[in-house]
Design a protein around this nucleic acid. Sequence first.
DNA 1: TGTACATCAGTGAACGCGCGTTCACTGATGTAC
DNA 2: TGTACATCAGTGAACGCGCGTTCACTGATGTAC
Lengths: 205, 205
Amino acid sequence: MTIIQKVNTRKTTMGHSQADKAQSRERILRQAADAVRDTGLESVSVGKLMRSVDMTHGGFYNHFGSRSELLAQALERALVEGARTANAGMKPGDAPRSYETRVKGYVSRAHRDSRTSGCAIVALASDVSRADPASRAVMSVHLDDFVAQLATAMDRHDEGDAMLAVSAMVGAVLLARVQTDPKKSDALLKSVRDRLLALNHNAPA
Amino acid sequence: MTIIQKVNTRKTTMGHSQADKAQSRERILRQAADAVRDTGLESVSVGKLMRSVDMTHGGFYNHFGSRSELLAQALERALVEGARTANAGMKPGDAPRSYETRVKGYVSRAHRDSRTSGCAIVALASDVSRADPASRAVMSVHLDDFVAQLATAMDRHDEGDAMLAVSAMVGAVLLARVQTDPKKSDALLKSVRDRLLALNHNAPA
DNA sequence: TGTACATCAGTGAACGCGCGTTCACTGATGTAC
DNA sequence: TGTACATCAGTGAACGCGCGTTCACTGATGTAC
């Protein structure tokens, strides 16, 4: 370890290791991205967040300039992770997921029941719709991607059709999370899922 | 005014008039129902709410037992008002609104741009999905009504079709409120609206 | 390799602030007779 | 109708609390030579 001392350039140096710091930052951000999807943007407090990651609140500001800066990054992270989950297990070069696979995965009980690892658009759309334009812009990009990818996976490659599908997918999971009657919640998901799958085989309007 | 003194029963009496009290309560609750739809359940604070209604915070507890009791009533009120707006101008005995009228009114720029007077399901679904089961149950009732009424207005009277339509309607308005690009936001509404209108004339699946 | 020194991630006390809630008080409303 | 009294809606100071943020301090990490 001391062997490479001289090799290091004289640039700005460290206290605890750089690697430790990067790792701490990553733990905080990852935890925040989960918390934000689970209980909403506003629910995340610096104190609770740092405690949940076994640190004290003061250290937070070694990693982020402010709570709202963290929130912006947590939103972005949650959106990326949510999209990654939708493509779980995919490797570069794999054929893109089919429309059917996407709809079945999205409009599902599993997705309804796992906000923390699920799509951040469903989880945070209300919060973001009330937030500053910068946050809305961040989610808009992911929304556009979502629509574009789904359109590509549909027979007619029609963006308008994809907009309907995305709206229904997001709406269905959101409402299924509200519905207290489990049977009705399941029925809502099934009805929407079946109809979205059928929609892809319709003749052009 | 003093003429009817003797007529009053001796029951629990008043300070400022009963009518004044009822009116104060109504102003607070109405304001809360609007605020809740505009900025979310959690955003309503007792102090700000009372100030917005030109009173001081202490008086709040003459009308509501706690903030969370107020929030529960504000949610219910917002849901009722939102539904009433959807049926604006209707009198008992009028023919129920057509599917077409409902979809056009709901999936519209006007609705997207007026959270305060719009549907409380779109405005608060995320908040409520994270809230206690009691709040979720309150919204569930209104959601069931929404689906049932829309099914009635559809050619096939199919509840499953209505679930798809409601999911897409809620999802579209929600996402249109997120989208920062006005053209894309408008396009989203139009695409979903057109497709939902077409959906009602399809043959049975 | 060993020693003196510098950096800075993480700690925890402290700050000012807005929150929900309580409460002694006020004065207009209404009652009793 | 007039007078003495009771009620209670609304006021505003005060409470304890958690918040975001700051900062003097610590000690492990790393540097200089």
